[in-house]
Design a protein around this nucleic acid. Structure first.
Lengths: 244, 244
DNA sequence: AATTCGCGTTGACGTGGATCAAACGCAGTC
DNA sequence: GACTGCGTTTGATCCACGTCAACGCGAATT
């Protein structure tokens, strides 16, 4: 890439990093704020942080003082217990928040790891609380975001508690597809950022089971898999599998 | 019961129903508030509601406008999906909050059912938001409560995703024991308010598996079961079973 | 006291997914 | 271009839990 091209790109990014100019407004915290309120939020969210694939954003046990909004990239969160067992508790993408679990005890209770090179906005939580006492809309939106996380977790509990392997994987693919769509990407074609093992951990399955389910979906013409590249060929078919 | 006895009891309850006088302060929302702040909270939480065993506090799909604090009694929450599958997402006891899931969409996303005669404080959510913009401590505490719910759900996901039947049941019993203890009841002896089927649904197991696990624990001298009555005989034994 | 009903227990058997094991494919690296 | 290593696929076997079925028990009803 020619140097002037690179320079132009950097400049553009600097301009765009303000909340007031962020194209994630409708996904992230700033939802529904007016110009003045956005200006205040910009001040709050001044720090940004880049992470390389594989880097930890935070680790379980570390003191909590900020939550993070993903500007770009892809993360997983996982919890680890003494005896070595661990579980992926979620995958987070652009516009989603990380770190809400740390609010309760002021200590992070899980690890957040970048699954690709990523960038996050650091939101000091004490300041967010201050500002959300001033701005009603921000308060309301923040509460909704936390509550949505609870509802999402109930969905995962449902999945883990009542669904069979193929139903779980179908639900997982449809969920990813829907989230990519909401971000303007193709609903039918995407690259998985996580390994089969991580998918399995999230879905309460072993990696072999995940792999077999992928193969089976392919045989049945529901999807086309090639390593991490997924094309969904028959969305209704996947949905029917779920409700089965 | 003699009439004067009943009268005395009612009067006492009326006095005690104010947040400022509630013996659940350290479990419920009012944590850490001063006298003036408590007085304001009392105003907010003016309505109380009694429910008989089996009654619904709210149902999935109903409009959300309040959260509820349990003054006494025992609840379960469950979600039901189209194809008839359902899952118990939690059991709630005295001092715990119900309804946080409804904040996100302003519609309840699960059912809350009383498992014994119960009484709740109705907390209009809009008013809670107003008041928590005034009272920093209340805001902070409310955020912690929501976050704690997320952490709790992660624990359940862990349980459903990685533990085997007996480990799940051991974790469940220890969790109940710990919550009873926090409320001043015996850590070792209590009555289950839910059926084997409901326990199974929560733990992602069939009722027969729950029943067999109970029997097995009894054979091994870990607990004594008699219908819904449980005595924990060997807490370390149960813990070891979990970390196994 | 007999009857019904909801729950719980226990046994026999089947199966979905775990486990173990081998081989493959792609991406770096030398 | 061969080498190495991680992630993935696929097959064979095993086992924890689900399923199906019978029976038991206590509480409420008559």
């Amino acid at each position: 890439m020619p140097p002037q091209g690179a320079t132009a790109k950097v400049t553009l990014e600097v301009i765009k990093t303000a909340c007031s100019n962020c194209n994630l407004q409708e996904l992230c915290l700033p939802y529904g704020l007016n110009q003045m309120e956005l200006a205040k939020l910009d001040e709050l969210v001044s720090t940004r942080k880049r992470l390389k694939r594989g880097e930890h954003l935070y680790r379980s046990g570390q003191p909590f003082d900020s939550i993070y909004a993903i500007r770009s990239g892809f993360f997983k969160t996982d919890v680890l217990i003494e005896d070595g067992r661990d579980q992926v508790t979620g995958f987070q993408m652009t516009g989603e928040l990380l770190g809400l679990d740390g609010i309760s005890s002021e200590i992070h209770t899980c690890n957040a790891v970048a699954l690709e090179d990523s960038e996050v906005c650091t939101i000091p939580f004490a300041l967010l609380e201050d500002l959300s006492r001033e701005i009603h809309t921000l308060q309301k939106h923040f509460h909704k975001v936390m509550s949505r996380e609870i509802v999402r977790d109930h969905g995962v509990m449902m999945l883990l508690g009542t669904m069979r392997a193929e139903e779980r994987l179908a639900a997982f693919l449809l969920n990813l597809s829907q989230r990519f769509t909401a971000r303007g990407y193709s609903p039918a074609e995407f690259n998985l950022r996580m390994t089969r093992d991580e998918i399995g951990s999230y879905l309460g399955l072993k990696l072999e089971t995940v792999s077999r389910a992928f193969s089976r979906f392919q045989e049945e013409g529901l999807i086309a898999v090639q390593q991490k590249h997924i094309r969904i060929l028959n969305t209704p078919g996947l949905k029917k599998l779920m409700t089965h």
